[in-house]
Design a protein around this nucleic acid. Structure first.
Length: 477
RNA sequence: GGUGGAGUGGCCGAGAGGCGAGGCUCGGGACUGCAAAUCCCGCUACACGGGUUCAAAUCCCGUCUCCACCUCCA
């Protein structure tokens, strides 16, 4: 995978034992995740599936930020601000959005992390981490009794993001809220004094307060992953300042590079602009579903683009993705008429696609290969079936899913048989009328019998070697 | 202003010196009473201006445009 720190491809490997330790920055649960956020969470899922494919075990920790993430004005915690807007308890809000976050992940077939520690429940380990930074001389108390990180003390500050400490200009927003409390403008708060804040605050040796945004990831990643992170995942916008600061906080404590490989997912644009509240183009997964799309159409769209390219999503591209996965599912059902055949040719396709995925998660190329399998004239149905079955868990697109069985609305059954009767009597005026009535009930009728023959005849010519019962089964379909 | 990335047909997108990916849409055809679906065929593109080369979407120089990051962000 492409490592942000060394700016080149690096192998993923477990440092201790055989389990790859992964940390992925999770959501701040003050609002619904939009599909852009979900793109990053999909990245960690794809990495895990690729690791499983390659025979590795992995342990994934993803934090839930329910405290300490300051909002735009740097005056109020994001959760508390939302709590004020919704006039509800801040933790109740956090729990609600957290549950909705999990719902969204499930809809996208993003397999759950092994653990989702909440920042608010990890305060002691953050305090312990800050304590160590004090002992090592990286932390100091400001005039406002907050605790700050001494950025100049950390020699390689800026290596991850490409910023240089002396080039970072004092930010006016920081100056606004933190006055002269910090020794240096690039320093940041590890622990913030409560001030006049009365909710979501904790008692500490340095007084009552709440954690800075970055400390949770340092403390929680090292705690839950036993002191070392093999792979750290997050959105590209977290590269600076969040991950730069996290690295500065973590490395002194571990006495080493705390993270072996920094993986960043690029941003999602929607119809040409970065998805954001201010651009007014925020799309939630439920918006996609409200338009009748399978949520996995989004997963498909994401996989059609390399994770480290900006990608532009649009309703048209979601529709295109949807029609491809629908066709693939239908094709698979056809291929299932014959037994699967894991031949040498099929295996070499599978190996090729594994290779695409293992090479810096080249899912676009892997999907191209899947299309080639679909269209191939040299692969048999049984081989295609074997390939689909072997790769389904790698892609997570539910390609083996049969068309949904749904209850027909009341009266539909009668209309369908009446229509069949009318058609057999060549009373097409009547049969079309009945079709319209069915359409009004939401039932779409397709007359498929003759249609299948066209492609079937072609397939039979190719499949002449199959046992007779398999052919018969296919004809019956 | 600084840094990074990108401009490919109606749309989305791969390719990174030499046989014009693929998908979606659209058009034509086969099939069908019709429709839908499916299958077949078609739509010949690489921002602009120079240059290098036998050969450039691909390399070089310049220009334009867009996007992102530069202390809210996935």
């Amino acid at each position: 995978m492409y490592d942000t720190l060394t700016r080149q491809l690096q192998p993923i490997k477990p440092r201790n034992g055989k389990v790859v330790h992964i940390y992925c920055c999770g959501p701040t649960v003050y609002r619904d995740a939009h599909v852009g956020n979900l793109r990053t969470f999909l990245l960690s899922d794809l990495v895990r599936r690729a690791l499983t494919m390659s025979g590795f075990e992995s342990l994934l920790i993803q934090n839930i930020t329910d405290v300490g993430h300051m909002s735009e004005d740097f005056e109020e915690d994001k959760i508390l601000a939302q709590s004020r807007r919704e006039k509800r308890d801040p933790f109740a809000i956090a729990r609600d959005y957290e549950a909705r976050f999990h719902d969204d992940l499930a809809l996208l077939n993003i397999s759950p992390a092994d653990s989702y520690p909440r920042a608010s429940e990890c305060i002691p380990m953050m305090l312990g981490h800050i304590e160590k930074l004090f002992e090592l001389g990286y932390a100091y108390r400001g005039d406002d009794t907050s605790v700050y990180f001494d950025s100049q003390k950390f020699n390689s500050y800026g290596e991850l993001s490409g910023n240089r400490l002396d080039a970072l200009k004092p930010g006016h927003r920081y100056e606004f809220t933190e006055g002269g409390a910090k020794r240096f403008h690039a320093d940041w708060a590890l622990w913030k004094a409560a001030g006049n804040r009365s909710e979501m605050i904790w008692d500490t040796p340095w007084g009552r307060g709440f954690p800075g945004w970055h400390i949770e990831c340092s403390a929680m990643s090292l705690h839950y992953l036993n002191g070392h992170v093999d792979l750290h995942i997050g959105g590209i916008d977290l590269r600076f300042p969040h991950h730069e600061n996290e690295r500065a906080q973590s490395n002194p404590v571990t006495g080493d590079e705390a993270v072996d490989l920094w993986l960043h997912g690029e941003h999602l644009l929607f119809e040409g602009r970065k998805m954001s509240k201010s651009a007014g183009n925020v799309v939630l997964l439920r918006d996609v579903m409200a338009r009748g799309f399978d949520p996995l159409a989004i997963r498909f769209c994401f996989m059609e683009n390399r994770y480290r390219s900006q990608m532009d999503l649009s309703w048209a591209s979601i529709a295109a993705g949807q029609s491809v996965i629908r066709r693939w599912r239908e094709k698979y059902q056809e291929w299932c008429a014959v037994p699967q055949e894991l031949t040498v040719a099929a295996q070499s396709e599978i190996v090729k696609i594994h290779g695409n995925v293992a090479e810096d998660l080249d899912t676009p190329r892997a999907l191209i290969a899947l299309r080639e399998v679909e269209k191939s004239n040299s692969l048999s149905f049984g081989e295609k079936r074997a390939i689909w079955e072997s790769l389904d868990s790698l892609f997570g697109l539910d390609l083996l899913k049969p068309p949904q069985e749904v209850e027909l609305p009341a009266g539909a059954e009668e209309l369908i048989s009446a229509r069949a009767r009318a058609r057999s009597e060549k009373n097409f005026i009547e049969s079309d009328k009945l079709r319209d009535q069915l359409a009004a009930l939401g039932v779409q009728v397709r007359d498929t019998r003759v249609v299948r023959m066209g492609s079937l005849q072609l397939s039979l010519r190719q499949r002449i070697g199959y046992p007779f019962h398999a052919l018969l089964q296919f004809l019956v379909r």
